[in-house]
């Protein structure tokens, strides 16, 4: 017997899914902001001459890039409170976990962007007598951001999708609500299809915008 789709449950499910989406977007936004700030520090530390600073940070980056985000999330949720001996609300631990994760990726993107600025641009700034902060602000960073912005945007889109991992530890995001509704209604196919569409409707325009921005920035050359 062929599967009978029961789309009539969608109107009932939608408000719940949208409530989940709000939490998903909040988590994404908070983590983008905190992660990018962390990424700036990570890039600065990675570029430091002192190996006592740059090496440990390199290790942090490799660890978070080389292990699954789900493992990081679960580990921080369950193990960190034990190690620190404190209670961590679920929301705090997922913010910490995701921030540490994307911070590593943002950090590498920022470092790569800064290092992509040609050496002679830096030298020209030096012999014009610009101080280090002025050199970064007026010469290096504006050029680095051409490289950083598209990468950071596509990392952010990935992050938006990866927040679905938090549903595994009971945070009521879009994915969590979809799973709960699936069991409640016995209609996982319909519910998950709608959830996928919601993710797509948000992620796709961002991806397109990123690609367009990337092309525009690439066409500006000296």
């Amino acid at each position: 017997m062929p599967y009978e789709w029961a789309w009539r449950i969608v109107p009932r499910a939608l408000p719940v899914l949208v409530r989940g989406l709000q939490l998903t977007l909040s988590i994404t936004l908070v983590v983008i902001i905190l992660g990018f700030l962390l990424g700036i520090l990570v890039a600065a530390a990675r570029l430091a001459r002192n190996p006592l600073i740059s090496k440990p940070v390199a290790l942090y980056i490799e660890f978070f890039r080389g292990t699954p985000a789900l493992v990081q999330l679960v580990w921080i949720y369950y193990c960190l409170p034990i190690i620190l001996g404190i209670e961590l609300p679920g929301f705090a631990s997922i913010i910490i976990a995701l921030t540490l994760n994307v911070g590593a990726f943002y950090g590498e993107a920022i470092r790569a962007g800064i290092q992509a600025v040609p050496r002679d641009q830096v030298e020209a700034a030096d012999i014009l007598g610009l101080s280090y902060p002025d050199k970064m602000r007026f010469v290096v960073l504006p050029q680095a951001f051409r490289v950083i912005i598209p990468v950071a945007l596509s990392l952010s889109v990935s992050l938006f999708k990866d927040t679905s991992l938090v549903s595994t530890i009971g945070v009521a995001d879009l994915m969590y609500q979809a799973r709960v509704l699936s069991t409640e209604t016995y209609r996982p196919m319909e519910i998950l299809t709608v959830a996928a569409l919601i993710y797509f409707v948000i992620a796709f325009p961002c991806t397109v915008a990123t690609r367009m921005l990337e092309l525009r920035l690439a066409s500006v050359r000296h």
């Binding site: 030298e123 014009l128 007026f138 050029q143 500006v220």
Partner: peptide, 17 residues
């Protein structure tokens, strides 16, 4: 250093300005 000006073989005008 600022008492000296220098021009290079490569073009070093800042492209975003």
């Amino acid at each position: 250093q600022r008492l000296m000006g220098m021009v290079f073989q490569q073009f070093t005008m800042f492209p975003h300005l």
